[in-house]
Each structure stands twice: as C-alpha cells, then as structure tokens.
Design a protein around this nucleic acid. Sequence first.
DNA 1: TGTACATATGAACATTTATTCAGATGAATT
DNA 2: AATTCATCTGAATAAATGTTCATATGTACA
Lengths: 97, 97
Amino acid sequence: MNIYSDEFNSLAELYKNFSDPTRLKIMYELSKEELCVQEIAERLRMNQSAISHQLRVLRNVRLVKFVKEGKMARYSLDDDHVRYILQIGVDHVKHTR
Amino acid sequence: MNIYSDEFNSLAELYKNFSDPTRLKIMYELSKEELCVQEIAERLRMNQSAISHQLRVLRNVRLVKFVKEGKMARYSLDDDHVRYILQIGVDHVKHTR
DNA sequence: TGTACATATGAACATTTATTCAGATGAATT
DNA sequence: AATTCATCTGAATAAATGTTCATATGTACA
C-alpha cells in the first residue's frame, strides 16, 4: 500500500460513514436486529426524512442492505466488517476514558 | 450502551479522525516508524503547515504522541487501537473491491 | 546578538456535510 | 380510482472541515 495510491481515499470514505452520530446509532441498532425506516426514526427520535437520507448514504457504500417488503423496507447491516469496526471503536473509546 | 448516551458522539469524533486521506497517510507512515514533521511532509509531498495542522488534530485526540528533541518533534502512534482500526479498514476496503 | 531552521498558529477561503421542508413515488386497502 | 401509509428525493440552509498563506514561537549555533 503506497502513499500515492487512492486506497487512502477509499479508506477515508469508509471511515467518513462512521464519523456521524446518527449513522453510528443507525448501525448500532441494526447490529441488534433488522429494522424498518420508521422504527429507526422512532428509536432515535428523529424525523423519518433524516433517517432516510442517512440510510441512502449507508446503502450506497454497502454498509447496510435492505429488502423491500410491501411498502416497508427492512434494513440490516451488510457485512461483519461493519460490526468489527464498530466494536473496535467502542473498545477504544471505553479504553481512553 | 444507549442511543441517547454521548458515547456515540465520542465514537463519531474518533472516526472523524480517520475520515481524511492526509491524516490516514500520516498515521500509516507513523505505523511504520517514528517521524518528524518535515519527514512526513516530504513523504506526502505536502507543505509543512498542512501536516502540522493535522498532527495537532491527531495529538488532541491522542491518536499520535510526540517527544520534543531539540528543535524537532518525533511523532509516533499513541496506542495499538490506532493500528487495529487502520488494519480493519484496510481489510474491508480490499475485501469489497 | 543575529541568523537559520523546525514547528506551530491564526485568518481566510473554498468545499463538504447534515438537517429540514416540501413534495414525489409506489404499495396496500377501500 | 381515491386514500393512506412508508419511503425516497431535491432544494435550501447552516455548520463544519481542510488547505493555503503569512507570521509567530522557540531552539541551536556562529
């Protein structure tokens, strides 16, 4: 891995998704169970539009996935790396407090 | 860990530091060896001021540390979590390409 | 004391970002 | 077909961010 390769841009893009509390909370809730948009909005006490915007972001980078079920959309984490990255962050924060 | 706790803000703040290619490159270089500001600037082909600004950010959140040696400052990674977080990110990026 | 060098800082600017609001899409139900 | 409900989208706004330029600080050494 070399300093001028654009892997660093991809990496930065990846972490950017974890750099917002709303998205972290969404991923945290999804790490426990599949949820639809409205359920997430209620748990975070935020309006549905804000959640939907953030879900789109997370969808685009394949951190979450979803299946349409009628008029609802069931969201879940896309892969286990997401869980790891969350977990290590939690460890670090706990460790440095 | 609860949705309304501010741990999510701390977590987001932590990841924010990894969400910029310049800071990632700095941490990557420091994961290999201790370096002073000018050496980092040369490796990244960036000016010294930009590097210094980013180092301050990383210092403030204890991701890097430094020792003053005369007029120079030797920077290094502050703890092993930094290395882990970098590594998992790299794995994820490689895995999803 | 004066000069050179390494690093840090402050202000300014351009860019990116998250949220809100209003409205659009599309599925279910009557 | 009309209504209701869940979700998505686009535009607008406010706030945060990274870099550059110019300058300041502080150390070493003649």
